[in-house]
Amino acid sequence: MAQEVRGVVAPGKNEPVRLETILVPDPGPGEAVVKVQACGVCHTDLHYKQGGINDDFPFLLGHEASGVVESVGEGVTDVAPGDFVVLNWRAVCGSCRACLRGRPQYCFNTHNARQKMTLKDGTELSPALGIGAFADKTLVAAGQCTKVDPGVAPAVAGLLGCGVMAGIGAAINTGGVGRGDAVAVIGCGGVGDAAVVGARLAGAAKIIAVDIDDRKLETARTMGATHTVNSRTTDPVEAVRELTGGFGADVVIDAVGRPETYRQAFYARDLAGTVVLVGVPTPEMTLELPLLDVFGRGGALKSSWYGDCLPSRDFPMLIDLHQQGRIDLGAFVTETIGIDEVERAFDRMHAGDVLRSVVVL
């Protein structure tokens, strides 16, 4: 029997979000109902609200979440009621060409719950990234549930569901940052600061944080940046080159996702260096680069999708590192808020006042 719970819904493009009663069905085969304990307010949710992802309104927002499995459907064996989990949007299929080649982090057939959550009048909801976790409970594919140590605070654990994992993975998994490397990170919001943390964890010798906001640059320093560049007043390409002996960084991570920041990343890297795009562009954006420069500079231009993570491998590892004191995931939590404060959290995000607001249920 479907359960009535509260959920944050984006009814239409750029319209204020609303707290609505939603219906969560019992889990079907391969599905699970999760009682949400915490969910971060991610910039991707704002993209959904603004119509920057697609126009499948109304959206049930929220995806950066942790909680406890309440019930599971037929055939589910990997998780059970009572398990503490982080929700992920990469439920690997195990049978596509990437999975069969031993590269499940690139799974081409990730899946979500088959059933739809709805409003009380029957209107079907589109859950953000197949999760929809600004809600007391949500229905997901069981493969979207990754078990982690229940000793970690839910507000901290949930951040691995998107932004923190995307940034750390962009540095380690996609960028392949190694010991002694010089790394530049353009854009020091939650994802960019996580990339700084990932670069430090990987042993980078020099980590250059680039942003237009001195407050964000100071936060990046607390996360491990060795140098900062305010690109509002300083040419970031020239600054990165100056800080790297005139050569450029070994790895440059664009955590903004705009054509101008991508061009900065492209020219701020050393010859044969790597550019990693982890910031999310909007559909109308295009990029133009001289093809001769692409050829002549060599190296690699990569896109990082979810930090190229494998949740079953990476989430528990990062929780362990947090509990060992080797990384401080709690530093990303600026504030905890109620489920009725998501619209205000979007305003604070847009103003650059927070790394993460986290809804605690």
Rank of each mutant, 00 (worst) to 15 (best):
A2F: 06
V9P: 06
A10W: 04
K13T: 10
E15G: 01
T21L: 11
L23F: 06
P27E: 12
G28P: 03
V36L: 05
Q37K: 15
C42S: 05
C42A: 07
H63C: 04
G75R: 08
T77A: 13
P81L: 10
P81R: 11
L87G: 01
R90G: 00
C99D: 03
C107W: 09
H111P: 00
N112M: 06
Q115I: 09
K116G: 00
K120L: 12
S126G: 00
K137E: 03
A142Q: 06
T146W: 00
D149E: 14
P150Q: 12
P154H: 08
G158N: 01
G163W: 01
A170T: 08
G178N: 05
G187A: 04
G192A: 07
K206G: 02
L217N: 07
V251R: 01
V252I: 07
A255F: 04
E260K: 15
A265Y: 03
L271K: 13
M285K: 15
T286L: 10
L287K: 12
E288M: 11
P290N: 15
V294M: 15
A300D: 08
L301H: 13
S303A: 08
S304E: 01
W305N: 12
D308Q: 08
D308I: 02
F315P: 01
M317R: 15
M317A: 15
D320E: 14
L329G: 09
I339E: 06
E341N: 05
E341R: 07
D347K: 11
V354K: 05
